[in-house]
Nucleic acid binder design. Structure first.
Lengths: 204, 204
DNA sequence: AGCGGAAGCGAGCGATCGCTCGCATCCTAG
DNA sequence: CTAGGATGCGAGCGATCGCTCGCTTCCGCT
């Protein structure tokens, strides 16, 4: 046993230094994603992930100190992809346009891998506190908060709460649609837009 | 092994016939609830549930053919409680009043045991098809669909979809609030009402 | 009282899982 | 070429878990 304060063993970001190790890490994370969305939490074992990734368990544990860290890395990867899209969407000049574009980004993201997205949303709430994950979540909230203060959108009494509510509405509606098997982006975006603008008090 | 078509082993509803066995079943279900909301899916073992309930594993398996059936019974119990409250709320004469009362019922239900409610929502989507669970879910949707056709609420192009959207909005907002640690019912109900009426196209 | 079914028990089987560790292999620098 | 660090390997340990089964105890009946 090493010093429990400083130790924590090699975390993934502990720089895989050669090209092949980077490929290994990516393969492991993607294998985790595939297994999670195929069979859910049951059957999601480190042995299964390693096999699917074509590496050994030993290699897996070189980059992820425990199973949870693997899920954490997956959450961060997916959330960062979403944030990237959302940031691009938010750059539109008009506030309403930007907001709708962010909705489109969320719908697109969640509809691309519905089972995975829904499962990771849940894991994010369940997993023990993780700094990097919280940072990602906060980034999305901050982005929406910024949008809400654009002059052409109705001012909200409590911007951060409103931003959190909007994200909850968006996530809730998309998850439910995904469960129902909905696959068409357009009508879903329409309905989410109605809900969001309705919440804000802006006429459609 | 018995006939796989008809058998399925004693299901819970297979009439516990004496008073003490009813108490046993209730103790098991409540123990399952307590463990789930305390530690989540990890650590939720049949051994742990039995111990917490003060019975033996053997007794547990007399009433629940497998672990999942226990979770299923818990889902049905909780959902039926919610539906009962919602039905009472929906009996109000004015459509808008009834809708707001249903929202209050949902908020009250979910805020009473937030972790449990959120986890069961997720399990409900994850678990294999179960007729009784689906019946409960459909009942809630039907109830809201009925509300949406009251004359004083704006007519929707697709009532069942609108009902599903509303329930998704409500569930999403409440879950998010619960995660954030919100405990006050009143402001949350207010915000959910704004989102719901906004979606429907009715002025607040 | 005493019988028979209902209810309850809990040691333990077989399987799985998270994770370790000693070692082989690959790559880069000098 | 060679040394040494980086990377990869996988058998297997220890623990846990779902679930069974042979048994005892309880209770309503006649």
């Amino acid at each position: 046993m090493t010093d429990p304060l400083t130790a924590q063993r090699p975390r993934p970001r502990k720089r895989p230094q050669q090209a092949r190790s980077l490929a290994t890490v990516e393969a492991i994370v993607e294998a985790a994603a595939r297994i999670l969305e195929a069979v859910g939490h049951g059957g999601f074992s480190t042995n299964a992930v390693a096999e699917r990734a074509g590496v050994s368990v030993g290699s897996l544990y070189q980059y992820f100190p425990r199973k949870e860290a693997l899920v954490g890395a997956l959450i961060v990867r997916e959330k960062n992809r979403l944030i990237e899209d959302a940031r691009a969407a938010a750059s539109r000049p008009a506030g309403t346009d930007a907001l709708v574009a962010v909705i489109e980004a969320c719908v697109g993201h969640q509809l691309r891998r519905p089972a995975l997205a829904r499962l990771l949303d849940f894991e994010e709430a369940r997993l023990p506190f993780d700094a990097e994950i919280h940072r990602s979540a906060a980034a999305l909230n901050t982005l929406v908060s910024g949008l809400l203060e654009r002059p052409d959108l109705p001012r909200q009494p409590d911007t951060p709460t409103a931003a959190a509510d909007l994200l909850a509405i968006i996530k809730g509606m998309i998850d439910a649609a995904g469960e129902r098997g909905e696959t068409g982006e357009v009508p879903l975006v329409d309905r989410v837009r109605r809900a969001v603008l309705g919440y804000l008090g802006a006429g459609a």
